[in-house]
């Protein structure tokens, strides 16, 4: 897990045309795409949107393995939810098996759910893999997001890294004293107990560490709302406009391509 987290930061500091775009523009663009994905009921639109996002990621030179690994994360969570839908939604039955019946409406809804999640995660992945954290905070600042939210986001991301690091060190120390997850010689209950205690200790330590870090920030004059950017603001350029306009265009096109406004439910 720790490696996955570090990898995002490494990839995000890359240098492609997409990386160089303004963080605010990227944020706005993916917000538009996500909003559309959440409201549309058209599977075809979602597929097209996903293709558009994959094209953006290709333009960002993101390694295919890196993207694939993260998109697969949709499956254990979203896939599980989607899998149930055909059996719990009412509608016209398409097949039944020992009293368990799948409906057309349920299958459609399951597919819609899965595609929506895929598009949303792709959008967020594109943003987080092409934008450095501090640029994103700066963009949020410009969008007048309250400083407390930005601070929370920043602290959370920093502490995830620290948390994984201390978990990793604790597990190493346990391994050195002969701890094994599988075939532990002290039995399965002992493994569960150790895992529980490790997690508990991790929580307490993280809290204490969080306090220490906060105190050291205060000692260095930190105040809520301290600006995150020390680089001069760059004016939006043609590239930024291009991304924003193409996102707006694709959303409008998808919304119109079926019946007028059907997708976002304004009819």
């Amino acid at each position: 897990m720790h490696e996955l987290f570090l990898e995002i930061q490494q990839v995000a500091s890359g240098n492609s045309p997409m990386h160089r775009l303004d963080a605010g523009t990227k944020l706005l663009s993916i917000l538009i795409l996500i909003l559309f994905a959440v409201f549309t009921k058209d599977l075809f639109s979602l597929v097209l949107l996903e293709i558009f996002l994959l094209m953006l990621m290709a333009a960002s030179h993101l390694p295919p393995r890196y993207v694939g690994k993260r998109l697969l994360f949709v499956l254990p969570f979203g896939g599980f939810l989607a899998l149930f839908q055909p059996f719990i939604r009412e509608g016209s039955i398409i097949w039944s098996f020992y009293g368990l019946s799948a409906t057309y409406e349920g299958t459609f809804f399951g597919a819609l759910l899965l595609l929506r999640m895929l598009v949303c995660i792709s959008a967020v992945l594109f943003l987080s893999s092409t934008t450095r954290q501090e640029d994103l905070y700066h963009a949020l600042e410009r969008f007048k997001v309250p400083p407390i939210f930005i601070s929370l986001l920043d602290m959370m991301l920093r502490h995830i890294g620290l948390c994984f690091e201390s978990l990793h060190r604790a597990l190493t120390a346990q391994k050195a004293r002969g701890f094994r997850w599988r075939k532990n010689r002290a039995g399965y209950r002992f493994v569960l107990k150790s895992a529980g205690n490790t997690l508990g200790t991790l929580f307490v330590r993280s809290m204490e560490r969080g306090e220490r870090i906060y105190e050291s920030m205060l000692a260095r004059g930190y105040k809520l709302g301290t600006s995150y950017s020390f680089e001069p603001r760059r004016r939006a350029n043609a590239g930024d406009a291009c991304l924003l306009l193409s996102s707006v265009f694709i959303v409008v096109f998808l919304a119109f391509q079926d019946r007028l406004w059907y997708g976002i439910g304004l009819v």
Binding site: A170, A173, R180, A186, S194, N197, R205
Partner: peptide, 24 residues
């Protein structure tokens, strides 16, 4: 290990010292 906090994780001293032998 350099940092004792990496090693100590059980609720009592005795349990923590017993951790290795238990694993054996």
């Amino acid at each position: 290990f350099q940092n004792p906090d990496d090693q100590l994780f059980l609720p009592t001293v005795a349990q923590d010292v017993a951790f290795g032998p238990m694993n054996h």
